[in-house]
């Protein structure tokens, strides 16, 4: 089997294009995924930034929720940024009551924890397992991780709050590496996927 992973980007809503570009730069084959049959064809998945309530609603409406949950349970590598982190949380705070998540990481995530758009910010983030200095963190109405279970590794914090985590094959960041042109977090994820192939 060819060792170039095929990585889908969940394309219901959000900054799909930026993730496709970042994944391609990290030497993966990247394609948008909106339907169950498209999901079945990828080795791994990125859940982009976007509006998590919209994304969750569309996933339910178009029959993607259960297929996604099944793949995550089955060990498919997944990386979620911002709204994607929310989708991967086993438990959510400050979400809508009817908001569904996929789960995948034993963590409690607080939605919009860093505030509204006027509080959105950029900062340098030290990321465990990524060499070459801190990564550029762009935080937009960003969530943070309130607490994690024993199986979860914290990879980065900012101002005392957890902003990057990994549990097994599932990775999540509060911030948006796809907006920076710095592809190291995507390369880290592509390595995770490659190791599992």
């Amino acid at each position: 089997m060819d060792n170039t992973p095929v990585i889908g980007v969940l394309a219901l809503q959000g900054d799909v294009r930026e993730h496709l570009i970042a994944l391609a730069a990290a030497d993966a084959v990247a394609r948008p995924v909106r339907r169950p049959e498209e999901l079945a064809e990828v080795d791994a998945l990125v859940i982009p930034g976007g509006e998590s309530t919209t994304m969750s609603k569309l996933a339910v409406l178009f029959g993607m929720l259960e297929p996604l949950r099944e793949r995550v349970r089955g060990g498919m590598p997944v990386y979620g940024t911002c709204a994607g982190m929310i989708m991967l949380a086993d438990k959510l705070l400050d979400g809508r009551e009817d908001q569904e998540t996929l789960g995948g990481i034993d963590m409690i995530v607080r939605r919009n924890a860093f505030g509204r758009q006027n509080e959105s910010f950029e900062a340098s983030i030290d990321f465990a397992g990524i060499d070459g200095g801190p990564v550029e963190g762009v935080f937009i109405r960003a969530p943070w991780v309130e607490s994690v279970g024993a199986e979860v590794r914290v990879l980065a914090t900012y101002d005392g709050h957890t902003v990057a985590v990994r549990q097994g094959n599932v990775l999540a960041t509060s911030f948006h590496p796809e907006l920076t042109g710095d592809d190291r977090v995507h390369a880290y994820f592509v390595d995770m996927v490659r190791t599992g192939l």
Partner: peptide
């Protein structure tokens, strides 16, 4: 940390895409 940068402002709109 810096708020109100071009990247943060434009990045917000990127999150709305497809919506």
């Amino acid at each position: 940390p810096e708020t109100g940068t071009a990247r943060v402002k434009r990045g917000m709109a990127e999150q709305l895409k497809g919506g």
